[in-house]
Nucleic acid binder design. Structure first.
Lengths: 138, 138
DNA sequence: CCGAATCCAGATTGATACTG
DNA sequence: CAGTATCAATCTGGATTCGG
């Protein structure tokens, strides 16, 4: 986002870490630590990713995110709503309809999320191998 | 993987999602779902990020990652090792020394991780506000 | 009918003490 | 120094139930 592009080193992580500040690293007041605490959750990233496609109903989310129980989906959505990343809209209809959508703030996560997705897709072969060997050992 | 680069829209997420495939979205066989399951853990991202700086000893990691207990640090490191993202090296010395470092595979996560860090730093103000209001409500 | 709250069993996490 | 053991606490998820 920042037009700060004349840095000599191509070390993307180094650059990002420099921007974090001069903290030792990752102590609990560090914003990166805090941010990861919000996102690094079993369902949160998947819900955000699902909503990147656009506004969705509760039941659509439940169908698309395989394995999520209604309880955890609701819980995850409520947390995202509290954090200002997702908006919840209730339609007073019968049968009831509830829709969820990313807020503007939520949409700012599209780049990091897409980056993670691309990583997963790019390394699918190795990942599947890792996961397979993990299962065989229990 | 496919060199499919003549898409008209600059929608980074849409592009990433298209590259995931034509799956409905995020079912449990989807590699994105699987990959997130490996990474979306309370400590995993922080440990990986800490190791982006370079090779580190166990105690250095514990000091830098505020709040992590030895049990969870060991558990997280062992999982990362099993997944091929981190390498563990034991030096037969007294006192004992164990060092951890990212593997080549682990380093492929530098871009997504940096992207997340930049997001956190860029939105630090709003994030801190969100976290503050969360604490006040319990 | 759809969205969500409750209850309870099982898994996960964490603080602390301890060992090689 | 680098972990393991132990036990308490928290979190998770599925079944069931409720409410509009």
């Amino acid at each position: 986002m920042g037009p700060k592009s004349n840095l000599p080193q191509p070390d993307i992580v180094g650059r990002a870490l420099e921007r974090i500040g001069k903290k030792p690293l990752l102590d609990e007041t560090c914003i990166v630590h805090r941010a990861f605490a919000l996102l690094a959750d079993k369902w949160t990233l998947l819900v955000l990713l699902a909503l990147m496609h656009g506004r969705k109903r509760y039941s659509a989310l439940q169908r698309q995110i395989g394995g999520v129980s209604p309880k955890m989906l609701t819980q995850t959505l409520r947390a995202l709503e509290e954090h200002g990343l997702v908006e919840r809209e209730v339609f007073p209809e019968v049968p009831p309809r509830v829709e969820y959508a990313l807020t503007d703030f939520g949409r700012t996560l599209s780049e990091p999320l897409a980056s993670l997705c691309e990583w997963a897709v790019e390394h699918e072969g190795r990942l599947r191998a890792v996961l397979a060997s993990e299962r065989s050992r229990g």
